[in-house]
Amino acid sequence: MHGPGSSGWLLVALCAATGMYCLLRMRSGVEEQRRAAGGEALMGFGMAAMAVPAAAFTPPAWTWPLWAAVFGAAGLHALWSARASARHLHHAVGAGAMVYMAVTMAATPGGAHHGGAGTPLLTGVLLLYFAAYVLVTGARLVPVAAVAGGPATDWGDRPEVARACRLSMGIAMVAMLLTM
């Protein structure tokens, strides 16, 4: 969040590209893909917007409470959806981390982030969670032997590509939390 210029722009590009792919996944024929893709697209685009370097654009003070409200609503939706699938708990944690970062940015004078503004314990817990998530998700990307003669799937329905997107958002979250 508002780190050095070049790394900030790389983070913006990564998160925006992930958000775009998630929007494409919303057209999937697989219902579970469509359900998860909307929240993941919101997360990708939100992370991209929050990662824009402060030297390029400093958002007005009212944007941080707006982000907190949007991601708070997304977190509540994820908690409600967690009744059907525990995977949605990860989405709730991600939305909670975004709320935390937005609230921290709102409390920072001028909205510029200078490090150390967040609660160190909460930042550390979130860092540990997302670092573990990145490691587990990365391990799941290890290639598995393809099933010969299996049904062809649309590139938007490929679970390994969706995992790669989740992995990139997890890495981006770690990078953003490191600036806290």
Rank of each mutant, 00 (worst) to 15 (best):
G5H: 03
G5P: 08
S6I: 04
S6P: 03
S7D: 11
W9D: 13
W9K: 07
W9I: 12
W9T: 10
L10C: 03
L11K: 07
V12L: 06
A13E: 04
C15P: 04
C15Y: 04
A17L: 13
G19N: 07
L23C: 15
L24I: 14
L24T: 08
S28H: 04
V30E: 12
Q33Y: 08
Q33R: 11
A37H: 07
A37S: 14
G38W: 12
G39L: 03
A41M: 06
M43G: 09
G46L: 05
A49C: 09
M50S: 10
A56P: 00
F57N: 06
F57H: 13
T58M: 13
T58I: 09
T58S: 13
W62S: 10
W62H: 08
T63S: 04
W64Q: 01
P65I: 02
L66C: 05
W67V: 05
A69I: 09
V70Q: 05
V70S: 01
F71Q: 05
G72Q: 07
G75C: 11
L76T: 09
H77E: 13
A78T: 08
A78Q: 03
W80F: 10
W80I: 11
A82M: 06
A84M: 00
A84Y: 03
S85N: 12
S85L: 02
H88K: 02
H90Y: 07
H90L: 06
V93A: 12
A95W: 01
G96D: 04
Y100I: 03
V103N: 02
V103P: 00
M105V: 10
A106V: 00
A107D: 06
A107G: 13
P109W: 05
G110W: 00
A112C: 10
A117W: 08
G118T: 10
G118C: 14
P120G: 14
P120K: 11
L122S: 04
G124C: 07
V125S: 02
L127W: 00
L128E: 02
Y133F: 14
V134C: 12
V136E: 08
G138F: 02
L141T: 05
V142R: 15
V144P: 00
V147N: 06
V147H: 10
A148S: 15
G149T: 07
G150M: 01
G150K: 12
P151G: 06
T153W: 02
R166W: 02
R166A: 08
L167S: 10
S168F: 02
A172N: 06
A172I: 01
A172K: 00
V174T: 08
A175I: 08
M176C: 12
L178H: 14
M180S: 13
